[in-house]
């Protein structure tokens, strides 16, 4: 697989793919988990930072980001709900912006910084959003929760003190079928310190 003819073929077949680095490909730092890379399929080596850690990985060009994260890097906190850009369960941060990881190819991540739900807590301390999600009972079944958290994180990075309508608009790409929207919104307001102000305004 190393160095690899197939990779060069890949470069010809899909020339538009950014970050095609097959020519200087070396063996990845560590073998990936999950189904082995199929050398007959176009593939590329990419460098990316995930949750603060640099990775150099060889990926099939057809892998989506969520496949790379879940199947091959064991970061299963990111969920697949629809695999077609409708539900938001797979939301991660790419260079600090929210993105559906089911709708991004892994090869597009070359040179980028990805943050998943596993990267929210720092040094064993939960992010204020995680604390607020627990206190306000955001997760019911919990399956959409990682995506809700990452959308909320992206929102607060841009707008640290959103009002209720801004939270709802900012997170509307994240479906919750338990429909616990009220509690998710309250949790985000609480984490951003605007819940009390919101209550005063509405009183």
């Amino acid at each position: 697989m190393e160095g690899t003819g197939a990779g060069i073929v890949a470069a010809k077949v899909v020339p538009a793919l950014k970050g095609q680095t097959a020519k200087q490909a070396k063996a990845p730092e560590a073998p990936l988990a999950g189904p082995a890379l199929d050398p007959s399929v176009p593939h590329s080596t990419i460098k990316l930072t995930i949750n603060g850690q640099e990775h150099r990985v060889e990926v099939e060009d057809r892998w989506t980001l969520v496949e790379l994260l879940r199947d091959h890097l064991k970061l299963t906190g990111t969920k697949i709900g629809c695999d077609r850009g409708e539900c938001g369960a797979c939301t991660v941060l790419v260079n600090g912006e929210s993105a559906y990881s089911c709708s991004q190819l892994a090869v597009w991540m070359d040179g980028k910084t990805v943050t998943t739900v596993e990267g929210l807590a720092r040094n064993g301390k939960l992010d204020p959003l995680q604390e607020a999600f627990i206190e306000h009972d955001g997760p019911q079944c919990g399956y959409c929760t990682s995506g809700q958290l990452m959308s909320a994180k992206a929102l607060l990075l841009k707008n640290p003190h959103p009002n209720r309508d801004e939270v709802r608009a900012g997170m509307t790409g994240n479906i919750c079928r338990c429909s616990n929207y009220n509690h998710y919104v309250e949790a985000v307001l609480a984490a951003s310190g605007t819940l009390a102000a919101d209550a005063r305004r509405r009183a």
Binding site: G34, P35, G77, K79, V117, P139
Partner: peptide
């Protein structure tokens, strides 16, 4: 009372069915 498994639900550590693999697993 917050859920007893709430920390796992907000850190991605809760393992749902599709998160579970076994060596040599087929799809």
């Amino acid at each position: 009372t917050p859920r007893i498994d709430a920390i796992k639900r907000v850190t991605g550590a809760a393992t749902y069915t599709a998160d579970i693999t076994a060596p040599g697993m087929l799809y």
